[in-house]
């Protein structure tokens, strides 16, 4: 019986590391531009679908190579979102940006439907055999998921703490106007944020698709989990998003032992409500953050 709970815990960590990768981009964008990017979920879906496209005919590249062009295009989509929609709207009222991001997300999602249809798709991989580690069953892809999350967050930590670019990123999310006055190159910082958000979302999407399957709604469904993670960690807080993502993944998977799996999603939904009610700044929120 302990191995059953240990299995659920491991599943939770696997799911949580992916949620954390989705949440981090959302948190960064919120931290600097102060809006909730509803089209963030579509970066997840596009990353996954593009990899799938490059790995199947007519390209038929191996999956690990097709990740490269897929992520490049995903980053392109992320930057284009900013260039053509969010930058022109930066000075307008918040509701305009919010509605635009919902519209953008709907457009990109239907773009997926247009190109590849609405049906479930799977990567044409040989059946991944699970490894049994002291009673816990885990597949190679799931190990890859956790390792990639570790690697990506380590790189992010290095970037934010040990480089000048990271320093300016942190300064900008602290106070965007003051940073601009101090001569920080805003274009560079903006680009970095969108590139990071797109790469994290795209990679997370690819890993999720390798583990499960692809469908046009995968981004939207993950986005709500990412919202919950961001709220838990405190909006705009990158490390909060990591912990929030892990927490949600674990809570969701452990809950399967107690409630019907049909209502698994209720955990993150309910959590969003409770957090908004009692702790709207999250557990690691920046002091004075907007709620």
């Amino acid at each position: 019986m302990t191995s059953y709970y240990a299995q659920l815990l491991v599943n939770g960590i696997i799911a949580g590391s992916i949620y954390a990768m989705f949440a981090v981009g959302l948190a960064m964008v919120y931290g600097v531009f102060k809006f909730i990017n509803f089209s963030h979920g579509e970066l997840i879906t596009w990353g996954a679908y593009l990899t799938w496209m490059f790995s199947s005919s007519p390209f038929s590249l191996p999956v690990y190579i097709s990740v490269v062009p897929a992520l490049l295009i995903t980053v392109g989509i992320g930057l284009a979102q900013d260039r053509f929609v969010y930058r022109p709207l930066r000075q307008s009222n918040p509701i305009a940006i919010l509605i635009a991001s919902i519209g953008l997300s709907y457009m990109l999602r239907n773009g997926i439907r247009l190109c590849w249809g609405s049906d479930l798709q799977t990567f044409d991989l040989p059946l991944s055999t699970g490894i049994l580690l002291s009673g816990i069953y885990i597949t190679k892809i799931q190990i890859l998921m956790v390792l990639s999350a570790l690697l990506f967050f380590s790189i992010l930590y290095f970037l934010l703490t040990c480089t000048l670019l990271g320093k300016s990123l942190r300064a900008v999310s602290d106070n965007i106007e003051l940073s601009a006055i101090m001569g920080i190159n805003m274009t560079k910082v903006t680009w970095t944020i969108w590139v990071l958000a797109s790469v994290f979302a795209g990679t997370g999407g690819i890993l999720l698709a390798l583990d499960t399957s692809l469908d046009p709604m995968m981004g939207m469904n993950s986005l709500i989990k990412a919202f919950a993670a961001v709220l838990l960690g405190g909006a705009g807080n990158v490390w909060g998003a990591l912990i929030g993502g892990l927490f949600i993944g674990i809570a969701e998977n452990i809950s399967v032992a107690f409630i019907s799996p049909d209502y698994k999603d209720f955990i993150s939904y309910g959590l969003i409500f409770l957090l908004l009610l009692f702790k709207p700044r999250g557990f690691f929120g920046i002091a004075g953050g907007v709620r």
């Binding site: 929609v85 307008s92 509605i99 519209g103 953008l104 709907y106 457009m107 990109l108």
Partner: peptide
């Protein structure tokens, strides 16, 4: 025919974005 519904969705999304940009 299967392209119609997604295209329609894309147009709706596009109109929302354009409205916000040009005529909020």
């Amino acid at each position: 025919v299967r392209f119609v519904a997604p295209l329609q969705g894309m147009v709706y999304g596009f109109i929302l974005v354009i409205m916000m940009l040009k005529r909020p």
